[in-house]
Design a protein around this nucleic acid. Structure first.
Lengths: 130, 130
DNA sequence: GTTAAAGCTTACGTCAACGTAAACTTACGT
DNA sequence: ACGTAAGTTTACGTTGACGTAAGCTTTAAC
C-alpha cells in the first residue's frame, strides 16, 4: 500500500467489492484510476468517490443518480453556470432525501408499535399458561 | 367501486400501478385477490398490503424482503413459535432501518454543508464582480 | 526459464421486477 | 347480433448491476 496509490486488489480488500465492480464503475465513469501501462492505480480521489458510491447504493440510489451526486461533490473547479445547475440539483435531491427520511421515521415508529403489540400478546400467553 | 371489492382497473387507478404489476405481485404471493370466475376482486386486505408493498419499495426493499415484512403484519393468527421467529425478524429489520435512518441523516447534513459551501462561493463571486 | 499470481479485455450469463405482445374469453351497450 | 372494453393466460423482451468464464500479458519468485 504505497499510501497514495492502490492496486485493484488492495481496493477490493479495503472496500469489500470485486475487481469486476471497480472496472464496471470505471466504465460507467464513476471513478477514473490512473494507468501504469495497462494496470489501474487508484488514487485518494477514487477512494473518496467509491466511498460515496457505496453509501449511495445503501440508500437505494441508482448508479446514474450517484453519478450526478458525485458531480455535485466536484463543485470547486466549475463554472458559475454549472454551479447553479448543480446547486439546484442538490436542492431537489436534498428534498427527496428528507422526505424519505421522514417516511422512514414514520415506518420505524409503526414497526415499533407492531413489535410492542407482539410483545404484549406474548406476555399474555406466558401469564395465561402458568 | 363497490366499497369493499375492487376490480383490477380500479386498483390501478387508485394506486397508480399497472395490471401487470398486480398480477405479478399475486404470482409472488404478496397479495391474494378473490375470484369471480376468472376475474380478480381485490379486498380491503389486498389494498392494505399493496400500500405496504409500495412503501417498502420506496425504502428500497426487495419484494422478497417485503414479503417477509408482510408476514410480520399478520401476527394475529399465528402460533407462538412462528411469532417468536417473526418477532426476531422484526427486531433485525428494525435495527437495519434505524441504521439506515442514521446514515441518511448524516448524509443529509453533509449535503447541507456542501450546499452551504456552494452558496458561500457564489456569494463571494457576486461580491468580487461588483 | 518457467510457473504462479495479478492484471487486462471481450463477451456471454443472471436475477429482479416488471413491460409488452399475442391470442383468447366474458360482459355490456346499441 | 356485434363490436368493444375489460379481463384473462402464456410467454418472450428489457434494464440495471454486476457474475463468470476464456484467453492473453506482465511481473515476481524460485
Amino acid at each position: 500500500m504505497s499510501e497514495e496509490l492502490m492496486t485493484i486488489r488492495e481496493m477490493c480488500a479495503e472496500f469489500d467489492v470485486t475487481a469486476r465492480t471497480l472496472r464496471f464503475y470505471e466504465a460507467k465513469e464513476l471513478i477514473s484510476p490512473l494507468r501504469e501501462g495497462q494496470k489501474r492505480l487508484f488514487t485518494k480521489r477514487d477512494r473518496a468517490r467509491l466511498k460515496l458510491i457505496l453509501r449511495g447504493k445503501r440508500f437505494g440510489f441508482s448508479l446514474e443518480e450517484i453519478r450526478q451526486l458525485l458531480n455535485m461533490y466536484d463543485l470547486g473547479d466549475q463554472q458559475q453556470t454549472q454551479m447553479l445547475r448543480t446547486y439546484e440539483l442538490a436542492q431537489n435531491r436534498l428534498a427527496a432525501m428528507e422526505a424519505q427520511a421522514a417516511e422512514l421515521a414514520e415506518a420505524i415508529q409503526e414497526l415499533r408499535d407492531q413489535i410492542e403489540w407482539g410483545k404484549t400478546i406474548l406476555a399474555d400467553r406466558n401469564i395465561s399458561s402458568e
